[in-house]
Design a protein around this nucleic acid. Sequence first.
DNA 1: AATAACTGTGTATAACATACACTTATCTGC
DNA 2: GCAGATAAGTGTATGTTATACACAGTTATT
Lengths: 290, 290
Amino acid sequence: MADRSPKRRPRSKKPPAPSRAGGTRATTSQGEIGRDLQMRSELLWDGPTRPSRGPKPALRGDDVVQAAIRIADSNGLGALTMHAVAEQLGFTTMALYRYFPSKEALIDACVDAALGTPSRRAAARKGWRLEMRDWAYAKRAMLCARPWLAELPFVAAPHGPNWLSWHEAFLQTLADTGMTPEDMMDMLGLVDGFVRGISDTAISLARARSQGVSDVEWAKAVGADLSRAINDARYPVLSAILSSASGGVKADAPLPTRGGRMRSMDEHFEFGLERVLDGIQRYMDAPTAR
Amino acid sequence: MADRSPKRRPRSKKPPAPSRAGGTRATTSQGEIGRDLQMRSELLWDGPTRPSRGPKPALRGDDVVQAAIRIADSNGLGALTMHAVAEQLGFTTMALYRYFPSKEALIDACVDAALGTPSRRAAARKGWRLEMRDWAYAKRAMLCARPWLAELPFVAAPHGPNWLSWHEAFLQTLADTGMTPEDMMDMLGLVDGFVRGISDTAISLARARSQGVSDVEWAKAVGADLSRAINDARYPVLSAILSSASGGVKADAPLPTRGGRMRSMDEHFEFGLERVLDGIQRYMDAPTAR
DNA sequence: AATAACTGTGTATAACATACACTTATCTGC
DNA sequence: GCAGATAAGTGTATGTTATACACAGTTATT
């Protein structure tokens, strides 16, 4: 309060902010993570509370978000600058600050908007296992569709409405299994963790594609690293796998979609997911534990 | 070749590079991901090929890396600027470019160095399950010890020697199980994906700690988001879990280490990991599949 | 010694995020 | 229907960054 008069705010030491500029929000520079996150969270959940004194804004916050997402979608996070967004909308860079107090806040909003909500799928009750499987595939697809999401430190962002909607959808999967709340949350962490963790490669490929890199080119780059292990004494097992690998893997494209031998990325995901679901099933079948 | 004479390099259009500055390397700006990654990879694997004409360098590349890591460790990625590193070493900013062609290359090196190598643990053969468990815990601990690693888009980095050494250690776990190479790689993806994915929260806490944020403060910030779901019609199940949760979870600190009810983060990890290992075990016991 | 090939330094520049002051439009209370 | 009060967009300025470029001092090779 009493911060309205123009020209104010000593802002103590902070110059134009440590300017952690660039593509991604790095650490929150100083140790005010708590406060900071809370403020960002409020911005995400509580709309901007339009006052009714001055002229009405020419845009809605969502217009800004959509423009920003468009840019990130087509050119990656690196291209997402305040200037670029403003230009896209036909406004000055500074105009955006009437809608979001910082680039970080805008990105928070973009993330939540980009996450979207898992399609209700008519709540088709097919049993937790199949539903969970659908959920996992949907989440993976969503992540691959917006590869730039993975360029952000996930945890650093506040969890907005859509973020929670994914959680909700997952939990509904278990709603009628009689599982304890604690177990349900653990299951969520398990499956969600697995999906996010294992999707890195697929996301990387998706990003390469969206930047105009051919699959072959990408595979070559990624494969090159792995192939260094071959004949390196430090990696006996890995080396053996890569060189033998039932049928001879081409040094390039070890995981990628080779029709040849090594399993495709999707098969890789499918395999892991089935193991995870097996593990869950086992737990549900024999609730002796704990 | 023939790129040695001073003053050269038209560099066609590239100004000082699209300057994707800031804390994290965002997308590689343009669509030259393939080439770019390859060059970065070479830098990582093949040392810098010291010529022997001029004065000998005052530093080794590793000194630079260590200085950079020190900064990232104590102040986060945001504090890792070329200037800060140079200062730490008592040199000019530009001196660093004699050791690494770009900040990105330096970070690549830092990442690999920070990953380290999993302790050989005397290769104690206790059976794949226990060994795998150790591996998972070790990897998680490593990630938490260097929370800034998670601020980087993992896949974007080339896989250096240490990165592969983690893979190797995992695979050795399965070396005498008679598993096919394909299955072994799938297992790696499964466990590694799970560990990285689920560790996000623990890493976030670790980062908060290293920035001087108290656990309570952090938990409050994270919990605030979740607690918004309570009594929100959009999240019936989540809401029920959060409010009921056998014993009444304090709205703040839902996952964190509450002695109260909800399981601690470590229990959460343990739980998920056991499910994953169960799933793997089941697969190994009944190799009918595929 | 002469020189080529380096090393570290100083300076310059472009991209960014964002502070601040200003002009103009719009609503509210009289 | 008018006088403020207040907000929206703009223009300009600043500090931070990465990094290009040219130069001065060094050293192994000729």
